[in-house]
Design a protein around this nucleic acid. Structure first.
Lengths: 187, 187
DNA sequence: CATCGACATGTCAATGCTGACATGTCGAGC
DNA sequence: GCTCGACATGTCAGCATTGACATGTCGATG
């Protein structure tokens, strides 16, 4: 459960209202890192405030409440970020599909790998476009973090290369079988 | 929600009981791809059986029921695997941490990146060990799928390289600041 | 001054999953 | 004959999250 820390992190960069936080989750953050709707954000803000990790720094029009991180909240965030990269819930649908690949016949497996290669190429291109828009590498709270963008890019490229490699493996396995079938031995 | 498809996939490889499926999730599958405990597996098996996707192929000692995939189940699995790699829930704690990196001061950020580099190197080494144990590349339902292993390996390596790159970026940003501070201009 | 869209927050039922608890069987070793 | 550990299945309360529904405000435009 990382939602409270995600909120803490966003508020640590700049105080925001629940509505603004919701918009952040609807953008790149929610797309690439962590999803959350306003229905989970508002209760979570209330909980964080109750625990003294954040506080209302300003009340604006239309009942809006701007929250800011307290010292305790900043400390909690720092601790969480630096805590041993604990093993969270494993929930990786793509890896699951790879595990199940052997349940498909070779033609279907090739098809699936081809689609993965195509979609990761597309995702990588999209991310490169996003990054180019954001300009040269700079740090700080500049929209989609440059470091995060580079991270995603390398992931996509890795999966893309892997898919091509996997198709090649299937081809080689095929050829080996064909060779032993048509020419059972050299003697 | 991919649990039913994970079960379908495992049963497509070989008929199994709920207990054996639970053990599969406790191993590499649960570690790298998808988690599930027996408390979700048993009800899900009942649901799949009710929908005619699997059926009890054998009843053994201690009330054990061995399930096998039906033709309908095999078809459902194939459809799911080949279906456009739909965008599921985004829940990537590591990417979230990258988004929040800017909330840390540079020293802490370096520390965090260093830990990520170290832990991915360790994870990769562990996976290489696992793969070496499993022997040369071969396909089929051989424990931890070779393709999945290679996939994980490339992911770990990519993250490792990225972390080193990111630390380098931080260093360069530092040097640039230091240069403009100590020698504001060339004239 | 009416309307509309963006702003802003909330409740509630349903879903999916986990952890704690519960129950019983079979085989091996003492 | 007893005990223990692995086998085998199950219920249930609790938690996080989602989607549907609900409510109201403010500013701009016609």
């Amino acid at each position: 459960m990382s939602l409270p820390h995600a909120l803490l992190g966003l508020l640590a960069v700049a105080p925001r209202s629940g509505y603004e936080l919701t918009k952040a989750f609807a953008g790149d953050l929610g797309r690439y890192a962590w999803q959350a709707g306003h229905t989970s954000i508002y209760p979570e803000l209330a909980r964080l405030a109750e625990n003294g990790l954040i506080e209302v720094s300003h009340e604006g029009a239309r009942g809006s409440r701007t929250y800011a991180v307290t010292d305790a909240g900043r400390e909690e965030l720092r601790t969480w970020l630096l805590t041993p990269p604990r093993q969270g819930k494993v929930r990786n649908e793509l890896v699951l599909r790879m595990f199940l690949l052997s349940a498909l016949d070779p033609a279907d497996a090739r098809e699936l790998l081809g689609r993965i290669a195509a979609s990761t190429a597309q995702d990588a291109a999209e991310l490169r476009r996003l990054r180019a828009e954001a300009g040269p590498v700079r740090l700080g709270p500049a929209g989609f973090g440059q470091l995060a963008a580079e991270y995603g890019l390398r992931q996509y490229d890795a999966v893309h290369d892997w898919a091509l490699w996997a198709i090649d493996q299937l081809d080689q396995a095929d050829q080996a079988v064909a060779a032993t079938t048509s020419a059972p031995s050299t003697r």
